[in-house]
């Protein structure tokens, strides 16, 4: 954890310093919101709701953060739990929202294909691929976030990539 983060966390825990929390929020909102966008098929409103829930949990449970890992890694592990809670609440989460489909279409057909195929992966596969390719997260950090051994992260990443590649190929053949 950087010394700046350490100071901010100490201020929030000891004095309930809102400015310190705001600094943390500003620093980490972008990766967490982007993470949820990927996990939710690009649904901006839903992903911001989940990101908000994540940061509220961060605020409430910051005193339990022991500093053994990077703060962002710890926040990602809370985000993972929030995402799974959301899945349990919703139960079904396989359809790409129509509005988002249009949003991806305006970007490129290729991205739309990946977005659709990503949503056909299991939540855990989606999570592991998003984490593996997310900026700044090493496989060691992914194993910390997902609380699984490093070897398992590597195996599951390969399996998820294989599955995604198969889905993409099947999808592109169907589109031809």
């Amino acid at each position: 954890m950087s010394s700046n983060d350490t100071e901010l966390v100490a201020l929030i825990i000891a004095q309930d310093d809102r400015e310190a929390f705001e600094s943390l929020l500003k620093k980490y909102q972008a990766p967490i919101r982007a993470f949820f966008r990927k996990m939710c098929g690009g649904d901006g409103e839903l992903s911001d709701d989940l990101a908000q829930e994540t940061f509220l949990k961060v605020y409430r449970h910051l005193s339990t953060f022991q500093g053994n890992s990077q703060l962002l890694t710890w926040i990602y592990s809370i985000a993972r739990n929030v995402f799974y809670e959301h899945l349990r609440r919703e139960e079904k989460f396989t359809e790409l929202p129509e509005s988002e489909e249009m949003s991806y279409t305006t970007r490129s057909e290729e991205k739309l294909d990946i977005a659709k195929c990503m949503l056909q992966l299991t939540p855990e596969e989606r999570l592991i691929l998003t984490m593996a390719y997310a900026q700044g997260l090493s496989q060691t950090e992914v194993s910390e976030v997902l609380e699984i051994p490093l070897g398992t992260v590597k195996t599951r990443t390969l399996q998820a990539k294989e599955k995604l590649r198969g889905l993409l190929q099947a999808y592109s053949e169907r589109s031809l």
């Binding site: 909102q29 972008a30 919101r33 982007a34 966008r37 990927k38 690009g42 970007r107 991205k111 990946i114 977005a115 990503m118 691929l129 998003t130 390719y133 997310a134 900026q135 990539k161 995604l164």
Partner: peptide
């Protein structure tokens, strides 16, 4: 994948 994941602008 890298292009897809990097292209998430918030």
């Amino acid at each position: 994948m890298e292009s897809f994941l990097a292209d998430e602008h918030v």
